[in-house]
Design a protein around this nucleic acid. Sequence first.
DNA 1: GATATAAAAGATAATTTAGTCTTTTATTTA
DNA 2: TAAATAAAAGACTAAATTATCTTTTATATC
Lengths: 146, 146
Amino acid sequence: MLTNASKYAIRSVLFLAQNSNIDKKYGAKYIADELDIPVHFIAKLLQPLVKKGIISSLKGPNGGFYFTPDNGKFKVCDIIEVIEGKNIFDSCFLGLPKCGDSNPCPVHHIVAPFKSELLKKFNMSLNEFKEDMDNLGTFLTLPTKK
Amino acid sequence: MLTNASKYAIRSVLFLAQNSNIDKKYGAKYIADELDIPVHFIAKLLQPLVKKGIISSLKGPNGGFYFTPDNGKFKVCDIIEVIEGKNIFDSCFLGLPKCGDSNPCPVHHIVAPFKSELLKKFNMSLNEFKEDMDNLGTFLTLPTKK
DNA sequence: GATATAAAAGATAATTTAGTCTTTTATTTA
DNA sequence: TAAATAAAAGACTAAATTATCTTTTATATC
Protein backbone atom coordinates (compact mmCIF):
# COMPACT_ATOMS: atom_id res chain seq x y z
CA MET A 1 0.00 0.00 0.00
CA LEU A 2 2.73 2.43 0.97
CA THR A 3 6.07 2.46 -0.83
CA ASN A 4 9.30 2.05 1.10
CA ALA A 5 9.91 5.71 0.43
CA SER A 6 6.73 6.73 2.24
CA LYS A 7 7.33 4.33 5.09
CA TYR A 8 10.86 5.63 5.59
CA ALA A 9 9.69 9.23 5.39
CA ILE A 10 6.83 8.78 7.84
CA ARG A 11 8.98 7.03 10.41
CA SER A 12 11.72 9.63 10.07
CA VAL A 13 9.35 12.53 10.53
CA LEU A 14 7.72 10.87 13.53
CA PHE A 15 11.14 10.17 14.99
CA LEU A 16 12.01 13.84 14.67
CA ALA A 17 8.64 14.84 16.09
CA GLN A 18 9.25 12.71 19.14
CA ASN A 19 12.93 13.29 19.74
CA SER A 20 14.13 16.55 18.24
CA ASN A 21 13.73 20.26 18.63
CA ILE A 22 15.63 23.36 17.56
CA ASP A 23 18.30 22.61 20.15
CA LYS A 24 18.50 18.90 19.44
CA LYS A 25 19.02 18.11 15.78
CA TYR A 26 19.75 14.79 14.12
CA GLY A 27 21.80 14.14 10.99
CA ALA A 28 20.61 11.85 8.19
CA LYS A 29 23.12 9.25 9.29
CA TYR A 30 21.80 9.16 12.84
CA ILE A 31 18.20 8.83 11.70
CA ALA A 32 19.11 6.11 9.23
CA ASP A 33 20.98 4.10 11.85
CA GLU A 34 18.23 4.55 14.40
CA LEU A 35 15.41 3.47 12.08
CA ASP A 36 17.35 0.90 10.08
CA ILE A 37 16.97 2.75 6.81
CA PRO A 38 19.46 3.32 3.92
CA VAL A 39 21.31 6.55 4.68
CA HIS A 40 21.48 8.07 1.23
CA PHE A 41 17.91 7.17 0.51
CA ILE A 42 16.50 8.91 3.57
CA ALA A 43 18.74 11.93 3.00
CA LYS A 44 17.12 12.30 -0.40
CA LEU A 45 13.61 11.78 0.91
CA LEU A 46 13.91 14.39 3.62
CA GLN A 47 14.78 17.14 1.15
CA PRO A 48 11.28 17.71 -0.26
CA LEU A 49 9.83 17.41 3.24
CA VAL A 50 11.99 20.30 4.41
CA LYS A 51 11.06 22.29 1.32
CA LYS A 52 7.39 21.71 2.09
CA GLY A 53 7.87 22.74 5.73
CA ILE A 54 6.96 19.38 7.26
CA ILE A 55 10.32 19.22 8.99
CA SER A 56 13.10 21.74 9.51
CA SER A 57 16.81 21.58 8.81
CA LEU A 58 20.00 23.51 9.20
CA LYS A 59 23.27 23.02 7.32
CA GLY A 60 26.71 23.04 8.77
CA PRO A 61 28.26 22.00 12.08
CA ASN A 62 25.69 21.23 14.73
CA GLY A 63 23.17 21.22 11.91
CA GLY A 64 20.75 18.47 11.00
CA PHE A 65 17.05 17.83 10.83
CA TYR A 66 14.65 18.86 13.56
CA PHE A 67 11.04 19.45 14.41
CA THR A 68 9.28 22.61 15.56
CA PRO A 69 5.73 23.15 16.86
CA ASP A 70 4.96 24.70 13.47
CA ASN A 71 6.06 21.54 11.68
CA GLY A 72 3.55 19.74 13.86
CA LYS A 73 0.67 21.39 12.06
CA PHE A 74 1.18 19.13 9.06
CA LYS A 75 -0.30 15.65 8.80
CA VAL A 76 0.99 12.20 7.89
CA CYS A 77 -1.11 12.55 4.74
CA ASP A 78 1.03 15.53 3.77
CA ILE A 79 4.16 13.39 4.01
CA ILE A 80 2.65 10.76 1.75
CA GLU A 81 1.48 13.34 -0.74
CA VAL A 82 4.92 14.94 -0.94
CA ILE A 83 6.68 11.60 -1.41
CA GLU A 84 4.18 9.83 -3.68
CA GLY A 85 2.76 12.86 -5.44
CA LYS A 86 -0.68 11.33 -5.55
CA ASN A 87 -3.40 9.89 -3.38
CA ILE A 88 -2.70 6.21 -2.94
CA PHE A 89 -5.76 5.47 -0.84
CA ASP A 90 -8.26 5.82 -3.67
CA SER A 91 -7.49 2.60 -5.44
CA CYS A 92 -9.36 -0.64 -4.86
CA PHE A 93 -7.61 -3.37 -2.95
CA LEU A 94 -8.31 -5.86 -5.75
CA GLY A 95 -7.77 -3.34 -8.54
CA LEU A 96 -11.40 -3.00 -9.51
CA PRO A 97 -11.58 0.17 -11.62
CA LYS A 98 -14.85 1.40 -10.10
CA CYS A 99 -14.96 -0.13 -6.65
CA GLY A 100 -17.18 1.64 -4.16
CA ASP A 101 -20.14 1.25 -1.86
CA SER A 102 -22.49 0.78 -4.80
CA ASN A 103 -20.14 -1.48 -6.78
CA PRO A 104 -18.12 -3.21 -4.07
CA CYS A 105 -15.32 -5.68 -4.73
CA PRO A 106 -15.32 -8.89 -2.69
CA VAL A 107 -13.30 -7.31 0.12
CA HIS A 108 -14.63 -3.77 -0.03
CA HIS A 109 -16.62 -4.19 3.18
CA ILE A 110 -13.38 -5.08 4.98
CA VAL A 111 -11.08 -2.58 3.30
CA ALA A 112 -13.34 0.48 3.39
CA PRO A 113 -13.61 0.77 7.19
CA PHE A 114 -9.88 0.07 7.51
CA LYS A 115 -9.02 2.89 5.13
CA SER A 116 -11.43 5.15 6.90
CA GLU A 117 -9.80 4.51 10.28
CA LEU A 118 -6.35 4.86 8.81
CA LEU A 119 -7.19 8.14 7.12
CA LYS A 120 -8.67 9.47 10.33
CA LYS A 121 -5.31 8.83 11.92
CA PHE A 122 -3.25 10.12 9.01
CA ASN A 123 -5.29 13.29 8.98
CA MET A 124 -4.45 14.10 12.56
CA SER A 125 -1.89 16.86 12.95
CA LEU A 126 1.58 15.54 13.68
CA ASN A 127 1.37 17.20 17.10
CA GLU A 128 -1.77 15.19 17.83
CA PHE A 129 -0.25 12.08 16.30
CA LYS A 130 2.76 12.36 18.56
CA GLU A 131 0.54 12.60 21.60
CA ASP A 132 -1.47 9.63 20.38
CA MET A 133 1.72 7.60 20.09
CA ASP A 134 2.58 8.40 23.66
CA ASN A 135 -0.87 7.36 24.81
CA LEU A 136 -0.80 4.09 22.87
CA GLY A 137 2.84 3.32 23.64
CA THR A 138 3.88 2.64 20.08
CA PHE A 139 7.33 2.37 18.49
CA LEU A 140 9.29 3.46 15.44
CA THR A 141 12.39 1.37 15.90
CA LEU A 142 13.62 -2.07 16.65
CA PRO A 143 13.01 -3.05 20.28
CA THR A 144 16.78 -3.26 20.78
CA LYS A 145 17.14 0.40 19.91
CA LYS A 146 14.99 1.56 22.80
CA MET B 1 -0.17 -4.30 -0.43
CA LEU B 2 -0.94 -6.58 -3.38
CA THR B 3 0.91 -6.19 -6.66
CA ASN B 4 -1.01 -5.67 -9.90
CA ALA B 5 -0.07 -9.22 -10.79
CA SER B 6 -1.84 -10.60 -7.72
CA LYS B 7 -4.86 -8.37 -8.17
CA TYR B 8 -5.23 -9.44 -11.79
CA ALA B 9 -4.77 -13.09 -10.91
CA ILE B 10 -7.27 -13.04 -8.06
CA ARG B 11 -9.94 -11.33 -10.10
CA SER B 12 -9.38 -13.67 -13.03
CA VAL B 13 -9.66 -16.78 -10.91
CA LEU B 14 -12.79 -15.47 -9.21
CA PHE B 15 -14.26 -14.61 -12.59
CA LEU B 16 -13.66 -18.17 -13.74
CA ALA B 17 -15.04 -19.52 -10.48
CA GLN B 18 -18.23 -17.58 -10.97
CA ASN B 19 -18.74 -17.91 -14.70
CA SER B 20 -16.99 -20.93 -16.13
CA ASN B 21 -17.13 -24.67 -16.02
CA ILE B 22 -15.84 -27.54 -18.15
CA ASP B 23 -18.43 -26.77 -20.80
CA LYS B 24 -17.98 -23.02 -20.69
CA LYS B 25 -14.38 -21.92 -21.08
CA TYR B 26 -12.96 -18.45 -21.52
CA GLY B 27 -9.87 -17.40 -23.46
CA ALA B 28 -7.26 -15.05 -22.04
CA LYS B 29 -8.50 -12.34 -24.37
CA TYR B 30 -12.06 -12.60 -23.11
CA ILE B 31 -11.00 -12.48 -19.46
CA ALA B 32 -8.71 -9.54 -20.13
CA ASP B 33 -11.45 -7.56 -21.88
CA GLU B 34 -13.98 -8.42 -19.22
CA LEU B 35 -11.80 -7.41 -16.28
CA ASP B 36 -9.96 -4.55 -17.97
CA ILE B 37 -6.56 -6.20 -17.68
CA PRO B 38 -3.63 -6.35 -20.16
CA VAL B 39 -4.13 -9.48 -22.28
CA HIS B 40 -0.56 -10.73 -22.50
CA PHE B 41 0.04 -10.07 -18.85
CA ILE B 42 -2.91 -12.12 -17.65
CA ALA B 43 -2.10 -14.91 -20.10
CA LYS B 44 1.28 -15.17 -18.46
CA LEU B 45 -0.09 -15.00 -14.94
CA LEU B 46 -2.59 -17.77 -15.49
CA GLN B 47 0.08 -20.27 -16.50
CA PRO B 48 1.48 -21.00 -13.06
CA LEU B 49 -2.04 -21.07 -11.64
CA VAL B 50 -2.97 -23.85 -14.04
CA LYS B 51 0.23 -25.69 -13.21
CA LYS B 52 -0.60 -25.45 -9.51
CA GLY B 53 -4.14 -26.68 -10.15
CA ILE B 54 -5.93 -23.54 -9.01
CA ILE B 55 -7.63 -23.23 -12.38
CA SER B 56 -7.95 -25.56 -15.35
CA SER B 57 -7.21 -25.06 -19.03
CA LEU B 58 -7.44 -26.76 -22.37
CA LYS B 59 -5.53 -25.89 -25.52
CA GLY B 60 -6.92 -25.75 -29.00
CA PRO B 61 -10.27 -24.85 -30.53
CA ASN B 62 -13.01 -24.43 -27.96
CA GLY B 63 -10.23 -24.41 -25.38
CA GLY B 64 -9.57 -21.83 -22.75
CA PHE B 65 -9.50 -21.45 -19.01
CA TYR B 66 -12.17 -22.86 -16.75
CA PHE B 67 -13.03 -23.80 -13.21
CA THR B 68 -13.96 -27.14 -11.70
CA PRO B 69 -15.25 -28.06 -8.23
CA ASP B 70 -11.78 -29.41 -7.53
CA ASN B 71 -10.20 -26.06 -8.35
CA GLY B 72 -12.53 -24.62 -5.75
CA LYS B 73 -10.65 -26.35 -2.98
CA PHE B 74 -7.81 -23.86 -3.25
CA LYS B 75 -7.81 -20.50 -1.50
CA VAL B 76 -7.13 -16.91 -2.49
CA CYS B 77 -3.99 -17.19 -0.38
CA ASP B 78 -2.79 -19.90 -2.74
CA ILE B 79 -3.16 -17.56 -5.69
CA ILE B 80 -1.12 -14.89 -3.95
CA GLU B 81 1.54 -17.38 -2.95
CA VAL B 82 1.90 -18.67 -6.50
CA ILE B 83 2.13 -15.19 -7.98
CA GLU B 84 4.23 -13.47 -5.31
CA GLY B 85 6.19 -16.44 -4.12
CA LYS B 86 6.14 -15.16 -0.54
CA ASN B 87 3.86 -14.09 2.24
CA ILE B 88 3.18 -10.42 1.79
CA PHE B 89 1.01 -10.05 4.87
CA ASP B 90 3.84 -10.37 7.36
CA SER B 91 5.39 -6.99 6.86
CA CYS B 92 4.55 -3.97 8.97
CA PHE B 93 2.46 -1.24 7.38
CA LEU B 94 5.07 1.37 8.31
CA GLY B 95 8.04 -0.87 7.62
CA LEU B 96 9.02 -1.41 11.23
CA PRO B 97 11.34 -4.43 11.22
CA LYS B 98 9.90 -5.98 14.37
CA CYS B 99 6.34 -4.73 14.54
CA GLY B 100 3.96 -6.85 16.59
CA ASP B 101 1.62 -6.84 19.53
CA SER B 102 4.49 -6.33 21.96
CA ASN B 103 6.33 -3.77 19.82
CA PRO B 104 3.50 -2.10 17.88
CA CYS B 105 4.00 0.60 15.27
CA PRO B 106 1.72 3.64 15.50
CA VAL B 107 -0.95 2.01 13.31
CA HIS B 108 -0.53 -1.60 14.38
CA HIS B 109 -3.79 -1.58 16.35
CA ILE B 110 -5.63 -0.58 13.16
CA VAL B 111 -3.74 -2.77 10.72
CA ALA B 112 -3.61 -5.98 12.73
CA PRO B 113 -7.39 -6.58 12.92
CA PHE B 114 -7.73 -5.62 9.27
CA LYS B 115 -5.15 -8.18 8.23
CA SER B 116 -6.77 -10.76 10.43
CA GLU B 117 -10.18 -10.24 8.81
CA LEU B 118 -8.65 -10.23 5.37
CA LEU B 119 -6.73 -13.42 5.98
CA LYS B 120 -9.85 -15.09 7.30
CA LYS B 121 -11.46 -14.31 3.97
CA PHE B 122 -8.44 -15.24 1.88
CA ASN B 123 -8.21 -18.56 3.68
CA MET B 124 -11.71 -19.55 2.70
CA SER B 125 -11.88 -22.11 -0.07
CA LEU B 126 -12.66 -20.59 -3.45
CA ASN B 127 -15.95 -22.49 -3.41
CA GLU B 128 -16.84 -20.79 -0.15
CA PHE B 129 -15.53 -17.48 -1.40
CA LYS B 130 -17.75 -17.69 -4.46
CA GLU B 131 -20.79 -18.30 -2.29
CA ASP B 132 -19.79 -15.43 -0.05
CA MET B 133 -19.62 -13.14 -3.07
CA ASP B 134 -23.13 -14.13 -4.04
CA ASN B 135 -24.38 -13.43 -0.53
CA LEU B 136 -22.69 -10.05 -0.33
CA GLY B 137 -23.47 -9.05 -3.90
CA THR B 138 -19.95 -8.05 -4.84
CA PHE B 139 -18.38 -7.41 -8.23
CA LEU B 140 -15.22 -8.13 -10.22
CA THR B 141 -15.81 -5.83 -13.18
CA LEU B 142 -16.80 -2.33 -14.13
CA PRO B 143 -20.49 -1.68 -13.51
CA THR B 144 -20.96 -1.23 -17.26
CA LYS B 145 -19.76 -4.75 -17.85
CA LYS B 146 -22.62 -6.28 -15.89
C1' DG C 1 -3.73 -35.95 -42.08
C1' DA C 2 -4.21 -30.76 -42.73
C1' DT C 3 -5.81 -26.66 -40.67
C1' DA C 4 -7.30 -23.64 -37.20
C1' DT C 5 -7.33 -22.43 -32.47
C1' DA C 6 -5.74 -21.33 -27.98
C1' DA C 7 -2.68 -22.19 -24.12
C1' DA C 8 2.41 -22.85 -22.80
C1' DA C 9 6.90 -21.40 -22.99
C1' DG C 10 10.45 -18.28 -23.53
C1' DA C 11 12.65 -13.99 -24.61
C1' DT C 12 12.62 -9.19 -24.34
C1' DA C 13 11.26 -4.28 -23.43
C1' DA C 14 9.54 -0.49 -20.57
C1' DT C 15 8.49 1.63 -16.34
C1' DT C 16 8.64 2.34 -11.56
C1' DT C 17 10.80 1.97 -7.29
C1' DA C 18 14.90 1.65 -4.62
C1' DG C 19 19.24 2.95 -3.59
C1' DT C 20 24.06 5.15 -4.29
C1' DC C 21 27.56 8.50 -5.25
C1' DT C 22 29.55 13.10 -6.21
C1' DT C 23 29.51 17.98 -6.12
C1' DT C 24 27.73 22.29 -4.31
C1' DT C 25 26.01 25.42 -0.79
C1' DA C 26 25.20 27.15 3.79
C1' DT C 27 26.66 27.50 8.54
C1' DT C 28 29.46 27.15 12.56
C1' DT C 29 33.74 27.43 14.99
C1' DA C 30 38.47 28.14 15.52
C1' DT D 1 38.92 34.07 6.81
C1' DA D 2 40.01 29.12 6.74
C1' DA D 3 38.50 24.62 7.95
C1' DA D 4 35.09 21.48 9.14
C1' DT D 5 30.48 19.98 8.98
C1' DA D 6 26.06 18.69 7.26
C1' DA D 7 22.19 19.48 4.19
C1' DA D 8 20.87 20.39 -0.86
C1' DA D 9 21.20 19.28 -5.46
C1' DG D 10 22.01 16.48 -9.21
C1' DA D 11 23.48 12.53 -11.74
C1' DC D 12 23.57 7.87 -11.79
C1' DT D 13 22.94 2.59 -10.96
C1' DA D 14 20.29 -1.46 -9.66
C1' DA D 15 16.37 -4.16 -8.92
C1' DA D 16 11.66 -5.24 -9.13
C1' DT D 17 7.44 -4.86 -11.41
C1' DT D 18 4.72 -4.48 -15.40
C1' DA D 19 3.94 -5.53 -19.88
C1' DT D 20 4.66 -7.21 -24.72
C1' DC D 21 5.97 -10.19 -28.45
C1' DT D 22 7.29 -14.54 -30.74
C1' DT D 23 7.58 -19.39 -31.08
C1' DT D 24 6.09 -23.93 -29.68
C1' DT D 25 2.79 -27.43 -28.26
C1' DA D 26 -1.65 -29.56 -27.66
C1' DT D 27 -6.38 -30.19 -29.18
C1' DA D 28 -10.45 -30.16 -31.98
C1' DT D 29 -12.67 -30.20 -36.34
C1' DC D 30 -12.88 -30.68 -41.16
